[in-house]
């Protein structure tokens, strides 16, 4: 493996896990909640939360979710209340909660997610369900990035509106793909579709990449290079100079360490 692949996704997270910290790790694109160094919850504005995943499609009535938050939110035992009141099976809650953690962590730990802050002692009102080692979340986040590019290496698909294309004669479109395509109106992005379908956002990104690879969704053209050339560069920097990744990494680590 290259040094890049084994490098920590977030050095601060690695350090917090090692010192068995409890609190909330806040980044631009999401928050990870830690308890004794293990990740117990995660949320991101880029992903549908547990409430959306559970209530879309009618598995759990929105009123039951609200009741659980109202009655057990202050005690920080919403998860236990949902199961004890018969709204949800224990196994289902664990499955959905784990899906939500890895989904939110993928975006929270994405490279463009900015600097991290740690609020020591902060906990989430969902309460305890299952915890995952921080290293497992980092490893899975890295695997997911590689998986997306292995399927169809066009990252611009992740943020562009999804535009369906007609299937070739005899081409199979699966039931889950049909459900996604039915909601792709040429305006909704993969993230919008995740909310509509009540599916994790990463799953929708992956499905859209698979659809594009199969020719069932338009692959947007790469942004024109001219846009980049238009910005004026300092004299000492030429267009062909690649950024010093090692230097940037050290800078980021130093910034994170000082926060």
């Amino acid at each position: 493996m290259t040094a890049l692949a084994t490098a920590a996704v977030s050095p601060l997270l690695t350090r917090l896990a090692a010192e068995r910290a409890t609190g909330a790790l806040l980044r631009d694109r999401g928050t990870l909640f830690l308890e004794d160094g293990r990740i117990v919850h995660a949320e991101s504005p880029a992903t549908p939360g547990l409430d959306v995943l559970l209530t879309t499609g009618g598995g759990l009535a929105p009123e039951r979710w609200r009741e659980a938050v109202d009655r057990a939110g202050a005690r920080r035992q919403v998860a236990r209340f949902l199961v004890d009141s018969g709204g949800l099976a224990g196994g289902e809650l664990e499955i959905c909660h784990l899906a939500a953690i890895f989904d939110a962590a993928f975006f929270a730990l994405s490279p463009g997610s900015g600097p991290s802050r740690f609020r020591r002692g902060a906990t989430h009102w969902i309460g305890s369900v299952r915890s995952v080692p921080a290293a497992a979340v980092e490893r899975e986040t890295r695997r997911r990035r590689e998986l997306l590019d292995a399927v169809w290496p066009y990252p611009q698909l992740d943020t562009s509106p999804v535009v369906p294309r007609a299937a070739a004669p005899g081409q199979t479109v699966t039931a889950r793909q049909r459900a996604l395509l039915a909601h792709a109106d040429g305006l909704r992005t993969p993230a919008d579709l995740a909310w509509v379908l009540g599916r994790p956002a990463f799953h929708t990104l992956l499905d859209v990449r698979r659809l594009a690879a199969a020719g069932l969704v338009e692959t947007p053209l790469a942004p024109v290079r001219a846009v980049r050339a238009a910005t004026t560069l300092p004299d000492w920097m030429t267009d062909t100079q690649s950024p010093d990744v090692a230097l940037l990494r050290r800078l980021r680590d130093a910034l994170e360490a000082s926060l």
Partner: peptide, 10 residues
């Protein structure tokens, strides 16, 4: 395959 009350694939 496990059938859940929400959209999943486990």
């Amino acid at each position: 395959f496990v059938e859940t009350s929400f959209d999943s694939s486990v």
